[in-house]
């Protein structure tokens, strides 16, 4: 019994589990029955369009906001029950949290005291994010990118097992984004930490994340590996022919669906290029073009999040029955 309990605690170490989380602001359901989990050793992307409920979810995980129902655990415990939260989890939240008159180094020393780590740690994290030369200056004069770095340094003070970053790429220059990407990969893949980053753009985190949790309008629309998403990319076949009508007739028995049609061509799904070419050759149909078109990941992401959005918007704006 005791051994089981110990085993379950260590199994939860470094995990974030969100279960049936619900949070409303007035009439708006910001987060609606959301469940997902985040595992150690990988970088998880938390994705969704603006206003999907990402920040609200993260704030509930971090104990800053109280859910209406459901909840979240960090390493097996609700956030408020963490006894040494600075070592368990560090967070970089969207808008920056600094007193403008306090120097970067003093800011870190304030929260080093709060996290119970020695002052030398403040200088370590300052160096980690490349801000050592700016350490003595007031944060009020910092650029957005420097603030993001300082926020990351603050989150790293307690050397946390889990790192949460809300829209970390905001304000970073391309060089900074590359730097952040390799740092996060290192923290997760080499050091085995849990890394969760939110973004409204899949392309922004595509090269960083192993797994994705996609939400729209407060609900989960997809949870899985990035490979899953790649697999969902439906390939379509683009054909040009002077006789599109005849080609459609010929292909119908193959279960092919036409997604787009013009005077000279068709866009099809449901059959590979080889099958389309063969059928056309057998029916003696002249083809001018036959090629495969692969959708980008962003298309899949948009499809996943928009369907949901459009359906919900229609449900909301539906006129009352006459």
């Amino acid at each position: 019994m005791t051994q089981q309990a110990v085993a379950s605690v260590s199994a939860d170490e470094g995990r974030i589990v969100v279960s049936h989380l619900r949070k409303t602001f007035g009439e708006v359901r910001a987060v609606d029955d959301l469940s997902f989990h985040v595992e150690p050793g990988e970088v998880t992307g938390f994705l969704g369009p603006n206003g999907a409920g990402k920040t609200t979810t993260l704030r509930c995980v971090l104990g800053l906001a109280r859910p209406d129902s459901g909840g979240a655990t960090v390493s097996g415990k609700p956030y408020v029950q963490l006894r040494d939260p600075g070592r368990a989890i560090g967070a970089v939240l969207e808008s920056t949290s600094f007193h403008p008159a306090r120097s970067a180094r003093n800011h870190l020393r304030v929260f080093a005291a709060a996290a119970g780590v020695p002052d030398s740690r403040a200088d370590e994290v300052l160096a980690l994010v490349g801000l050592t030369p700016a350490g003595k200056y007031g944060v009020g004069g910092f650029s957005l990118g420097m603030r993001q770095r300082l926020a990351l340094a603050t989150a790293m003070l307690g050397d946390p097992r889990i790192l949460i970053l809300d829209e970390p790429a905001n304000g970073l220059d391309p060089e900074g984004i590359v730097w952040l990407r390799s740092l996060l990969r290192h923290l997760a893949k080499i050091e085995g930490r849990t890394v969760l980053i939110s973004s409204h753009l899949l392309s922004e985190v595509e090269q960083t994340v192993d797994r994705v949790v996609i939400i729209a309008r407060g609900r989960l629309v997809h949870e899985g590996s990035l490979e899953d998403i790649r697999g969902r990319r439906a390939a379509s076949v683009v054909v040009s022919t002077p006789t599109p009508g005849r080609l459609m007739e010929t292909l119908r028995p193959l279960g092919v669906q036409v997604t787009n049609q013009s005077d000279h061509g068709l866009t099809l799904t449901g059959a590979p290029t080889s099958a389309v070419g063969h059928a056309a050759w057998e029916a003696n149909i002249e083809l001018h073009e036959l090629r495969e078109e692969v959708h980008s990941l962003e298309d899949v992401f948009l499809e996943l999040t928009e369907d949901r959005g459009v359906a919900a918007a229609q449900a909301q704006s539906a006129p009352p029955a006459p």
Partner: peptide, 18 residues
């Protein structure tokens, strides 16, 4: 109030949720 004005309330309550 300075904590809420400059949002240092966040790191403060993250490091001590009680």
């Amino acid at each position: 109030t300075a904590e809420f004005r400059h949002f240092t309330s966040r790191p403060t309550f993250l490091l001590e949720p009680r």
